[in-house]
């Protein structure tokens, strides 16, 4: 397999050529979709108008409303994709995604408690969902730690925790006033609708830091993905690395969930789709993140277009889009045999 070695001073990164091509193409697609997202709205803005708005003072709708939403689509999608890649890599199972092992459910529990028990103010909802996600992750981690973070074990424990939390969530919704129940159901499908700069500034900063740290650990993570023996001989502290990766993954998922609600299926499908398109071994981070960004941008556009002018929650569309594509990929693989 051909590979390219990128060198800059002491640092060098060896990248498969196909991965590099894929990254370039995916990057272009992200930019194109972002531009489309800036153009589309209640009033269509031509690309020329968009560029004028971005550089000048005019076009508040584009700069203050559409831009944060589009950036959130790209960055949140990338964060979800990366989080999915982390968990699927560590557990060695495509089902080992944040939404499968209970992180989303935990965040939702936190938000539901804030909505029904407390007053449901913005701060309470955000705090509740972050605490819930972290709580779920900690529980899964502590319960599966004693025997090492063996993949299958962690996934089964995660599924148990997820089932318990989902049960709690259903129970809360069933108990709730019909009005609150409907609001809570709306919340259960995440959405980027109405995101402004004030909402995304802090999440962007947090996700930026997390993704940079993740990039710096990605080489070690790749080695870890090759197996315990290789990792040990190259001197990577496997347990410590995994802990760091898990924390990054939890941070990404909880941050996105806190701001946008649970956007299902991106974390599950992006790594698998990215891996197949990039033709890379293991569950690589970069293709997963780029695919996640593309998926969420497409999803958010579709959510706005499908029933215009009434916007659908992006979480509903993400499930349908991501899931259909994954099925198509699997079907094509079967057909080519």
């Amino acid at each position: 397999m051909s590979a390219v070695v990128l060198r800059r001073g002491r640092f060098s990164v060896r990248v498969e050529r196909r991965t590099l091509v894929f990254a370039a193409v995916a990057g272009l697609v992200v930019v194109g979709l972002a531009l489309l997202g800036l153009c589309y709205g209640a009033v269509w803005a031509s690309p020329a108008k968009v560029f004028a708005a971005l550089s000048g003072d005019s076009g508040v709708v584009i700069r203050q409303w559409r831009l944060p939403r589009v950036l959130a689509g790209a960055l949140f999608g990338a964060a979800l994709g990366a989080a999915g890649a982390i968990f699927q890599g560590i557990t060695g199972n495509p089902l080992g995604s944040p939404e499968v092992i209970g992180l989303d459910a935990g965040a939702y529990t936190g938000a539901l408690v804030a909505l029904t028990v407390l007053n449901g103010t913005s701060t309470q909802l955000v705090t509740g969902s972050v605490l819930g996600g972290l709580g779920a992750a900690t529980a899964v981690y502590l319960l599966s730690r004693s025997g090492g973070l063996s993949g299958l074990r962690l996934v089964v424990i995660g599924i148990s925790v997820n089932a318990m939390l989902t049960a709690v969530n259903s129970w809360i919704v069933l108990r709730a006033e019909l009005e609150i129940a409907i609001a809570a159901v709306g919340w259960s499908a995440g959405s980027l609708n109405g995101l402004g700069w004030d909402d995304v500034r802090i999440p962007f900063a947090v996700l930026g830091v997390l993704l940079v740290v993740l990039a710096s650990r990605s080489r070690a993570a790749r080695q870890a993905g090759l197996g315990r023996e290789v990792a040990v001989t190259t001197g990577v502290g496997l347990e410590r690395l995994r802990l760091q990766l898990v924390l990054i993954g939890v941070g990404c998922t909880a941050t996105v969930t806190a701001v946008a609600g649970p956007i299902a299926f991106i974390a599950l499908s992006a790594p698998q789709i990215g891996r197949r398109l990039a033709g890379a071994p293991g569950v690589p981070m970069l293709p997963a993140a780029l695919t996640g960004a593309v998926l969420l941008l497409v999803t958010d556009l579709l959510a706005q277009v499908l029933l215009a002018p009434v916007p659908l929650p992006a979480g509903v569309v993400s499930t349908a889009v991501g899931g259909s594509y994954l099925i198509w990929l699997l079907a094509r693989k079967v057909g080519s045999r």
Binding site: F265, L312, V316, T319, A320, G323, L330
Partner: peptide
Amino acid sequence: VALSSVLSGVSLG
């Protein structure tokens, strides 16, 4: 899992 997710997404919508 993929099909379940698609169907539950459509149901949710």
